[in-house]
């Protein structure tokens, strides 16, 4: 039986008032409504914010307590078997049997995903090559390093050419080099292979490197959902570092109508429009101090969340 592929123009993920309770006490998702389009989307939130719960509900591993969700236009509750042939899942935890080879395991998962035997073998060979596993793919998975196991986990999620790939904390347990390689690989799958992805992480830096858009959840609620660019573009700053009399310079710049904040040894000047390089230079010369650094940079996502956290703390 062949199943009609999902419609191309439906939104990737759509949830309506999605709620998940564990027992009476724990509310993992609280009326979460969101819409996610094509491309690579990051889901960030602290541990316990509801990232894994959301992914598991979308995959049909958990039933929602209330509300609903569609994936590729299919209802996750009633059309799970049809839709999940077009979805790949790389879980956070270890999920590989140690006593079979990567080749055998990925072929098996391809068949479970509905690929006929010949296609399963062919695509397994290609996919393992794409994730960077070569001779070792005939060895038992138990002998692999963590980084290699992560690649096998990614390969089994990719082998059937999913329309949507869900990655739950894909860099978990990797050393910095392995982390970089995995992120490069994920970016490649998204950009070059054209596969839409939903990736959860509690590390903003990772999301920033890989994703086009970002969904922030906290305590099961949607905080914000937007493109990475719009998250950061409103946050252009000019940073200035001088060797002495920092406070004096700050007062002088503020007197000229700039918004200046001290951040350790740096002064950060919020920008709207062209950076006031000349103004800063003139003030520095008038003060007669040494200018160590002046650069324009974008706020990193971390900065954004630091600001929000400070505001939240101030509200309390």
């Amino acid at each position: 039986m062949t199943i009609a592929p999902p419609a191309q123009n439906s939104p990737l993920v759509e949830t309506r008032d999605l709620t998940k309770r564990y027992g009476r006490q724990v509310l993992a998702l609280d009326s979460l409504s969101l819409r996610i389009g094509e491309g690579v989307t990051g889901i960030v939130g602290a541990n316990g914010a509801g990232k894994s719960t959301l992914i598991k509900i979308l995959l049909g591993l958990l039933a929602p307590s209330a509300g609903g969700a569609t994936l590729l236009g299919f209802d996750v509750r009633t059309q799970g078997p049809q839709l999940r042939q077009y979805v790949g899942y790389m879980p956070e935890h270890d999920c590989l049997p140690p006593d079979v080879s990567a080749t055998d395991f990925v072929i098996h998962m391809a068949r479970i995903n509905g690929l006929p035997s010949a296609a399963a073998r062919e695509r397994t060979a290609e996919t393992l090559r794409h994730v960077g596993l070569f001779e070792e793919r005939y060895r038992a998975i138990g002998t692999y390093s963590t980084g290699m196991k992560q690649r096998v986990k990614l390969a089994q999620a990719l082998v059937h050419d999913p329309r949507l790939l869900m990655l739950d904390e894909p860099t978990n347990g990797l050393d910095p080099a392995g982390r970089d390689e995995m992120l490069d690989l994920i970016r490649r799958v998204g950009r070059d292979f054209g596969i839409s992805m939903l990736m959860s992480s509690h590390l903003l830096g990772e999301i920033e490197r890989v994703c086009d858009s970002l969904v922030v959840i906290d305590a099961g609620r949607l905080m914000r959902s937007d493109t990475i660019a719009s998250f950061t573009s409103s946050m252009q700053v000019l940073t200035v570092e001088v060797d002495e009399r920092q406070e004096e310079l700050m007062r002088r710049l503020e007197a000229k109508g700039l918004q200046v904040a001290a951040d350790g040894p740096l002064l950060t000047i919020s920008l709207d429009g062209t950076p006031p390089y000349d103004l800063v230079r003139d003030e520095v010369v008038e003060l007669g101090v040494g200018l160590l650094r002046m650069e324009q940079r974008r706020h990193r996502l971390e900065d954004l969340f630091r600001v929000e956290a400070q505001e939240a703390a101030a509200d309390v």
Binding site: M1, T2, I3, P81, Q82, Q85, Y86, R111, I112, N113, G114, L115, P116, A119, R123, E126, R129, H130, V131, G132, H160, D161, D184, L185, R188, D192, F193, G194
Partner: peptide, 19 residues
């Protein structure tokens, strides 16, 4: 990772009974 070109899969997906 050696880029030998990613090919998408347009063949049959045989569904639940086959799984």
């Amino acid at each position: 990772i050696y880029d030998l070109g990613y090919r998408s899969y347009e063949g049959a997906r045989l569904g639940r009974a086959y799984a």
